[in-house]
Design a protein around this nucleic acid. Structure first.
Lengths: 251, 251
DNA sequence: CGAACACTTCGGCGAAGATCGTAGTGTTTC
DNA sequence: GAAACACTACGATCTTCGCCGAAGTGTTCG
């Protein structure tokens, strides 16, 4: 029993475009139904059913039966980490594609990435925190400094670390900005705080985040970030996911 | 340009058993020739050539022409991280396979994992360091405590952090032991130190490590670890990699 | 109870791609 | 210069697997 064939098995599952789209759609931690995932991945429900069965059998997805529909979500944060790692390599990939992501301005601006924030805003926040020596960051990990801890305490961000002394964060390469943003315990705490204080809110069914007017103010005063949303915000956030069937997801 | 199809492209590359074997073989940072990789992955040289071309084009492998042979290695630590993440999910996978890895006692005992140590020894070291509060560790990262820093200083381990203040380490799930061992800057420093002081040495062409008598002594006094090598050590360390062609790799 | 709905199973079609034999290019060795 | 070697390019074969139409199970709603 070597490791090669085993990782091949998992990788092959992710290697199909339809399944990869499903997993991408679930990357923000939401739970979606089989039908929704079928539309999002651009295949017929029968096809999607087969894909979802494979992903569940392999332990990549967890499923919950509720009434006549089945809700799927990523089986664990480890799966999200794996997808993230794949994304990084896919982005770096051949040196050719130096261009950033076009279209979906809303997504580029602010979105969720499993349990933390991503996009321009998130990268800007990370930059600021590093610049002020509130966090130390590199590819192998990161940590909150004492100054940073005080900063977040003063801000009222609940780091959920009463019982656990260590204050970890880690870098997560932003696929639209190609720069690191904050993930891990600290990243999750920031997103939680932002949602609870209405700095940002989820847009429809997408992973995009809308920065509220209050959020713009707060982000400016707290982090010195210009967080005004792009002009074309709120336009078909999930449309980019469906390949063939451009139908609007019925919810 | 969505992320789904892009990660699918990369995942599909890893999704073929032959290519997965090649990448696994390169996981320890070695550079191997096309012929060696062909044998290790169990396919004919022509087939391997095609696979290697694809992996190189996609930016997963870096190749260096020297004379009439081409040496391949992982293009970056990011690729190793990706494979590691895949391995974790592949191991966790379906709850059924609760059994540990059988065979290859030498590999299970001690081996390299890209730039750090893995196997029973590495897990034991990590356990010990955590137990003594020299490092803090969880899935999101890790960090060296002040006490830990003093410990390594006293030990003479060069953490290579003169210019960089942060002292990062991270957990890497050991695929044979299913428990975390140390990776990141600290993990790499430990392996470097162990090699420089002849605690361990590379076995032939495999990623397995042989713990020297001196190493057994030092590991016992330093970490309180019983590091005596298994009795069947040094037997065909790479044989487990070749599937069909069991020929010995000509070097 | 029957209709609408969410999802799954089955079966055949079709395309993608992994494989290796043969043949070819460039490099080293004698 | 010829032979051995490492690797690559091409072509034919063959298996695999994604795909959807049609039909079937279980659930909800009127």
């Amino acid at each position: 029993m070597d490791t090669g064939p085993k990782i091949a098995q998992v990788a092959a599952l992710v290697g199909d475009p339809a399944r990869a789209n499903m997993l991408s759609a679930l990357m923000d931690g939401r739970t979606l139904t089989a039908t929704e995932l079928a539309y999002l991945s651009g295949v017929a429900p029968q096809t999607a059913s087969g894909h979802l069965a494979k992903l569940s059998d392999a332990g990549l997805l967890a499923l919950e039966r509720r009434g006549r529909r089945r809700y799927f979500r990523l089986a664990s944060p480890l799966v999200a980490r794996m997808l993230e790692a794949l994304m990084v390599v896919a982005q770096e990939g051949p040196a050719q594609q130096r261009n950033l992501w076009r279209g979906g301005e809303t997504l580029r601006h602010a979105r969720t990435c499993y349990d933390h924030m991503a996009g321009r805003i998130a990268v800007a926040i990370a930059d600021r925190l590093v610049q002020q020596s509130f966090v130390l960051l590199d590819e192998d990990g990161g940590q909150l400094t004492d100054a940073g801890r005080s900063f977040f305490d003063a801000l009222g961000v609940d780091l959920c670390l009463a019982s656990r002394r260590r204050v970890f964060c880690r870098a997560c390469l932003d696929w639209s900005e190609r720069r690191p943003h904050l993930a891990g315990a600290v990243g999750a705490a920031i997103l939680r705080h932002a949602l609870e204080h209405d700095w940002v809110e989820h847009i429809r069914d997408s992973r995009a985040l809308l920065v509220t007017p209050a959020g713009v103010r707060e982000l400016a005063t707290t982090f010195g970030i210009e967080a005004a949303p792009p002009t074309d915000a709120c336009k078909g956030p999930v449309a980019s996911l469906s390949r063939r069937r451009a139908a609007v997801i019925p919810v």
